[in-house]
Amino acid sequence: MCTCQGAAFEYIFNIEHEAKKAGVRDNVDIKWISNESFLGDFGMGGMHLNVGGYTASSKIFAESLYSERKLSWIIGAHVNKVEAGKAHYELLDGTMGVEEFDFAMLIPPFAGVGLKAYNKSAEDITETLFAPNGFLKVDANYAAGAYENWKASDWPRTLQNPTYGNIFAVGIAFAPPHPISKPMSSPNGTMITPTPPRTGMPSAMMGKAVARSIVDMINGATKPTHTACMAEMGAACVASAGKGLFSGTAAAMTVYPVVPDFEKYPGIGRDIKMTTGEIGLAGHWIKHFLHFAFIWKAKLKPFWTIIPE
């Protein structure tokens, strides 16, 4: 259950790009090991795109890119032990495997910081405030149960803690009601499934909505006045696949909504017109520009408010 697959994607493709630039690409064997049930799941159940007269799954585009760049993959894998030069893993079919490496990058499991909470009378209220994974409980439906019962409306809107009205959690800190991807486990009972990503744009939009609600509540409102729901907002994501002003590439994607809504958009759960993706130099330029724009925004320099999340 690791965090953003996008970060790992950027890492592996940039390593490949740099190895090629340094002229040593033929000497390195690069492999992706992931808990996704298919390549291109990205923790959000994949996405569908309209390309060349077809509506195709991100699985096809991800496999295409990995194949083109000579990267192999092991999918549905839970890495359960790492020792010097060896990563041990279990697959969805219950079999075990070992991968030998000279250099590896592993993304840690996704969990809250593990804060303890106490009320005025010093009673431990950690379980009331936080989900078992350490994330803060908000206005989500945590009782949705099996995948078949999941709905877009399970996802939080005000991000307010149901017990303590003056506590909110946004971005990575809030406890999602459940994953986005269909959960999978091996016959040995090991859960092998990716965590829902909470990327920069949705995190910032939640922060903004909560900040505005808090302002209104300080001024007398009795409940939150603004909402930001991952099942109602889109996300624009630019994943680097190699740096270089004229040789770089990045996958520029838009998804709407982030959490699929199969009632509103039967079949694929998303608005096909607003869910797009392509790889190229333009994506790299956008990523490079955003880097400076967001630092500008973080420093509250002139016109920072017009820079979107």
Binding site: L281, A282, W285, I286
Partner: peptide, 20 residues
């Protein structure tokens, strides 16, 4: 890619406006 840069920026702007 210059034209794609413009096209992607338009797509992303529409998405951002729809999400707010």
């Amino acid at each position: 890619q210059f034209f794609r840069f413009i096209a992607i920026n338009i797509k992303m702007t529409i998405l951002i406006l729809k999400s707010h």
